[in-house]
Design a protein around this nucleic acid. Structure first.
Lengths: 210, 210
DNA sequence: GCTCTTGTCAATCAAATGATTGGTTAAAGG
DNA sequence: CCTTTAACCAATCATTTGATTGACAAGAGC
């Protein structure tokens, strides 16, 4: 007869019930669904199906669609932040940002959706996180300007915004890209090419900081 | 007794029933609603209410929400096209394009929504209209490059896309702008300032064609 | 073992939403 | 006038959709 093996307590991955894992599954599924369809187009049923759980759990864990959206945004916000090390020169930093469309397409899309859904400074919890993320980049631009390497009339904040919008073009303007180039705007080849072009443009503008 | 006045046939504006005007009202209301909420977020009831018309007329004239969306997109596509006269230098052309966010915010927003809703080269009826619109601009960029005024590694098509995305930033990234500048991204003051900045950037890049 | 908590699901609900039906009336054509 | 056409509306429908209910079973604690 087999001796009764000392049954170690099962790790969360093995347990049938694991609230934390379920919760995270729903969050991940929500990220995918919201990224694909936006808030209005997303379906809680779709999220539950993606997560492989019962639809009711969305209410159980997050109190409904809106609560789930908020929780998901919050978590997504936290994950970002370690984009490029502080010392990186601006052109490389911009290339890295453009490459996010490849590493984290869902994040980029949700960011773009949130721009169109944006109604005003109220109900924008991510505001300070965003400005913190972009702040030092603007500082760099200002420094370049003070060195006389950028025209004094150029507004560093506007420049930063223009560059950011340019980086996101494969996400925000895929229809233009496909119509103009005939290539798949989401393909790794194009996005890498585009990221190179962004970096190149940054150098043409003169954003090299020696 | 009054002589029977020769009753002229009433102009459309005076008639109680005027199919063409009703149709156009619905189209205008649809443009506003779709621009504000996107396709998924738009409500046919909302459109009918905006148009001051019975909801059923949406089906009567356009066969439903999707048909209305298509008809509206098509009309919107036709209206555009006379953006800037052909001879305009590129920086001015870009400023003009950025100013569209002021003259035609709904059009810009619908354009941005359509980018996120875009699924592929199928079901994109506006494709050739778009490339036609941008084609000559790319040609200009190529000419500049051939003159040696732009680095040969720079891809004119990508540059065009980046500039276009930059012009649209007040529409696509209002949350970033408000968080970074603290101003209303839709205010005429900001959009005009931003348009100036776009033109300035174009000159920094060297898009002046003498 | 027993109980209590709570994670999970199937079934169902109420509201919203796009669409349809049937009737009504303005206006065009005799 | 009278008839016919078609623009228009109120009422209603079927479906979708987000949310709720109630049962139940897996674990934790005793």
């Amino acid at each position: 007869m087999t001796s009764p093996r000392p049954r170690r307590s099962p790790t969360p991955q093995e347990r049938q019930r694991d609230p934390e894992r379920t919760r995270q599954r729903i969050l991940d599924a929500a990220a995918a669904e919201f990224a694909e369809h936006g808030y209005a187009g997303a379906r809680t049923r779709g999220i539950a199906t993606r997560a492989g759980v019962n639809q009711q759990l969305v209410s159980y864990y997050f109190g409904g669609k809106e609560g789930l959206y908020r929780a998901m945004s919050e978590q997504w916000q936290q994950r970002r932040g370690e984009l490029s090390p502080p010392g990186t020169p601006l052109p490389e930093q911009l290339r890295g940002y453009a490459l996010e469309a490849l590493r984290n397409p869902a994040g980029f899309r949700m960011f773009a959706w949130s721009g169109l859904q944006y109604t005003g400074p109220h109900d924008d919890p991510d505001r300070e996180a965003r400005s913190r993320m972009l702040g030092d980049s603007v500082t760099k631009l200002r420094a370049l300007q003070d060195d006389g390497r950028l025209p004094p009339e150029l507004d560093p904040v506007c420049l930063q915004i223009m560059l950011m919008a340019a980086c996101m073009a494969p996400t925000t303007l895929p229809h233009v890209i496909e119509g103009l180039c005939g290539v798949d705007p989401r393909s790794p080849e194009f996005i890498e090419h585009f990221a190179d072009q962004v970096a190149l443009l940054a150098r043409v503008i003169g954003l090299e900081e020696n």
